[in-house]
């Protein structure tokens, strides 16, 4: 029994629908499962919802985090956000960041996945190079990127070397290029996950379907567009959801590489919460920002999941 290979009899999508509803009709009643999920609920839900509740309470205070007897200010921290230009800038950056990093990661990840399935030489090595960034901590890579994008850093050196010296510029030192640099780093870091998931999902596509398409005279690109891509929809939706949540939580890369600058050009919700809470000691306001972030993240996740389900069709 232990030796059996991964069962790939059913494709995940169809089976998951079955498992969601059909269990009772098709066989003996299933044994109760609540005790089985209890440890996970206690650990994650318990711990995390406790944290959210605590933060929700703090968000109604005007508090520096030290003084005894903080002042209750009701929703003031929330209304304050409406008139805070840095908050809105952070929201704009976060949204733009999500859209662009998601699109590029999807395109590049998909391209790699297709290429690695196309009998490329050295594919094993290529795969490792694309995935290794996933395991490297951003805290560890930040100094590398600061170095690389510095005015006399490696990137400009390469540009000058290949005769593109005119393109050399202080990448993280100007408002116009700082945000794209942050996006590049994020794409570099996370495309490995996109790639691996697409790569894995592609192994589930029935080869005979592809073969049939070929016999019908469909070219490579045509096959990709009308057969492969629709088959990957579930994965794409999941990645969009994870990407949206990730974008909202983005903190480490902009904080460590550009400190949110220059002139707030790379301020994100994550970095702004940090700035308000720690260096500026506006703990109540920071908590209110955290709550807004949580709500938006949840709404995004629900919306994407919903959209994905809707369009999956039957």
């Amino acid at each position: 029994m232990t030796g059996t290979s991964t069962p790939t009899l059913h494709r995940a999508a169809s089976v998951s629908d079955e498992a969601d509803g059909g269990g009772r009709r098709r066989g003996p009643r299933r044994p109760p499962g609540l005790p089985w999920i209890l440890p996970a609920l206690v650990l994650s839900v318990g711990l995390i919802y406790y944290g959210i509740g605590y933060t929700g309470y703090i968000s109604t205070l005007n508090w520096d985090g030290i003084s005894p007897g903080p002042e209750h200010v009701g929703a003031h921290n929330y209304t304050r956000m409406l008139h805070d230009p840095v908050f809105w800038a952070a929201v704009r950056h976060t949204a733009l960041f999500f859209v662009l990093t998601f699109v590029v990661q999807t395109l590049v990840g998909l391209t790699f996945a297709v290429l690695m399935h196309s009998k490329l030489k050295l594919a094993a090595i290529y795969k490792v190079i694309v995935f290794v960034p996933v395991v490297l901590a951003p805290a560890i890579m930040a100094p590398v990127f600061r170095h690389m994008f510095a005015p006399d850093g490696e990137l400009n050196a390469v540009l000058r070397h290949i005769g593109l010296g005119d393109l050399a510029q202080p990448w993280i030192g100007q408002t116009s290029t700082a945000l794209p640099v942050i996006m590049f780093i994020t794409i570099w870091e996370w495309t490995g996950v996109t790639f691996v998931l697409y790569y894995a999902a592609m192994t589930q596509i029935d080869p005979s379907v592809l073969e049939a398409a070929r016999i019908d005279g469909a070219g490579n690109l045509r096959t990709l567009r009308s057969i492969i891509w629709p088959e990957l929809r579930g994965t794409t939706v999941a990645l969009a959801m994870l990407g949206a949540i990730g974008a909202l939580k983005t903190f480490d890369v902009p904080y460590l590489v550009t400190i949110g600058g220059p002139n707030y050009a790379t301020e994100f919700l994550g970095t702004y919460i940090y700035r308000q809470t720690i260096p500026l000691s506006h703990v109540g306001y920071g908590a209110a920002l955290s709550i807004v972030l949580l709500v938006v993240a949840l709404l995004m996740a629900l919306a994407l999941q919903f959209a994905g389900r809707e369009r999956e069709g039957r």
Partner: peptide, 23 residues
């Protein structure tokens, strides 16, 4: 296994993905 309100529990758990460590 059989769990009443299975999807509710599942989403309760998934919602935890959205939490930044700060909180």
């Amino acid at each position: 296994l059989h769990i009443r309100f299975r999807e509710v529990y599942f989403w309760l758990l998934l919602a935890c993905l959205t939490l930044p460590e700060v909180v």
